[in-house]
Computed example of a mutant assay.
Amino acid sequence: MNILILGATGQVGFELLRTLSPLGALIAPTRAQLDLSSPDAVAGVLRTIRPALIVNAAAWTGVDAAETQQEAAFRLNAELPEQLAHFANVAGIPLIHYSSDYVYPGDGESPWQEDSATGPLSVYGASKLAGDQAVMASGAGYLIFRTSWVYGARGNNFMRTMLRLGQERDHLNVVHDQIGAPTPARLIAQVTALAVYRQQLGQGIEGLYHLAPHGETSWHGFACEIFRRAQTLGMVLTLTPEQVTAIPGKHYPTPAKRPNNSRLCVNKLEADLGIQLPHWEPQLQLTLMECLSAERLSTTPD
């Protein structure tokens, strides 16, 4: 079957190309081939390809930039999912879409449930919530995965930024009062592939699910663990975990307000899909190993 993947050049999209390849014929237009900001261009591709499944990993991910570029953020995060869901409903095909912990108000300390009240703090969060609501109201068979703190061995993300700064700085301030679970793009793609396989067997799941590893940490804790594990893997750094200072979020102001509580309860996904999600720390080790291996290969003479 034809599987249309949008956003295939992003962190999650790249991993989806690897995990979904055994399950169908993947069609993954690049940004140069498909202007996602154009409803007409998207409609044309949908009519031409006639996919049996749409996997939408495309998104506006610039949280701070969304505050001043609201139209662009809502086009990718709200209007595009709505357009895809409408097509999926008419065509009678499933849609898989990805969302964010930023749809929640970010207060308290309890993990958010799928039915927790939403209350985004930023334009980015509001645009993601609007996309979720449009998909859920479309009548299409959908699967929405809400996740948190996505990172990977490729692309722009917190882990890769820390690795770069760890080679350039001898001191760093990182926020300690925002708590969540770092989620590797690889894990998101692996769970997606399992869900698609179950769909093909007639045992699929539908609806809204949280997808994140077990455990929790702060951005400060995440940074320190990145440096600690990178050093044990042989990376030469000018920065050690002891040189990373924990600061409150109010001392690191940003255009968009971040949630303090990004904890997500994943019990529903584990029960319905019959899986045990891993802890975030071993997943970081795997991602670091892949990242460092890729960098060594890129610098190896022919």
Rank of each mutant, 00 (worst) to 15 (best):
N2D: 12
A8C: 08
Q11G: 08
F14R: 15
L17N: 09
A25V: 14
A28V: 05
A32D: 15
D35I: 06
D40L: 13
N56H: 06
A65M: 11
L76I: 06
E79V: 10
E79S: 14
L84P: 03
F87H: 06
P94D: 05
Y104S: 00
Q113K: 13
T118F: 06
A126Q: 09
A126I: 01
A137T: 10
S138V: 00
S138I: 03
G139E: 06
A140L: 02
Y142A: 03
W149Y: 15
T161V: 12
M162H: 02
R164G: 05
Q167T: 10
L172M: 09
L172P: 00
V175I: 07
V175R: 00
D177R: 00
A185Q: 05
A185C: 07
Q190G: 05
V191M: 07
G207R: 07
H210P: 04
H210T: 03
H210R: 02
A212G: 04
E216T: 12
S218T: 06
F222R: 02
C224T: 08
I226E: 05
I226K: 02
K250E: 13
S262F: 13
D272H: 14
E281R: 15
Q285C: 11
L286C: 09
S293C: 11
A294S: 11
T299R: 14
P301R: 00
